[in-house]
Write a protein that binds this DNA or RNA. Sequence first.
DNA 1: CTCCCGCGGT
DNA 2: ACCGCCGGAG
Length: 239
Amino acid sequence: MLQQTQAARVVPFFERFMARYPTPAAIAQAPAAEVLALWSGLGYNRRAIRLQEAARRIAGNGWPPDTAGLQALPGIGPYTAAAVACFAYGEQVPTTDTNLRRVLSRWLGRPLRGPELAEVARGELPSGRAADWNQALMDLGAGICRPVEPSCGECPVEDWCAGPETYVAPPSQGRFRGSRREARGAVVRGLVARGASTLTELSATTDLDKRQVSTALKTLSDEGMVEESADGVFRLPGS
DNA sequence: CTCCCGCGGT
DNA sequence: ACCGCCGGAG
């Protein structure tokens, strides 16, 4: 849930999920339609499908014991694997998210990315305190070492930091208004609200033209978020 | 407009 | 290395 999503926005969704699905087995057995209904509104709906698939593997095979095993699960990349390994398993690994990337880049005075970022972050880990360190750097990045208008005067490490200039903004994302992403999100919300629906019904509900709805349904089907249950009738999987 | 405790397919 | 994916806050 925290992947590319502000922590404050995640909290209510997380609480609902943990109440409904306290264990991997619980979410593994749920209909995908129900999981998507609980997820819809948080963003990046594919994460819900991948989370459930990961839970099914975990319910069947148990938890992967290390970072490599975690990263082999769907939807789990370098950051999430490291975060689980560190915060849940106590492994001494850096959680190289966007905050650590920015904080360490400014600290060292040059832009860090990819393998080099991971290597530098590993080198800075204080012995035996990876979890505290990672948490502290993420909070420093979110609260003080912000992307724009960082509060260097309040920063506890200002004296040995190169300064905020080296921050490089991520590539811009393209308009959301009128995008296929917006249409896909609207179609999922429409199917959550209406249940099984035709193209015409979804077009009316979402206030999108049939061309956009049709494209959204096709791509959503390809990714396992929608099924065509009968000819021309679409629904969320398992509904 | 930008950013958010990224990931996966190309 | 690049791009699409969701949605809300500032």
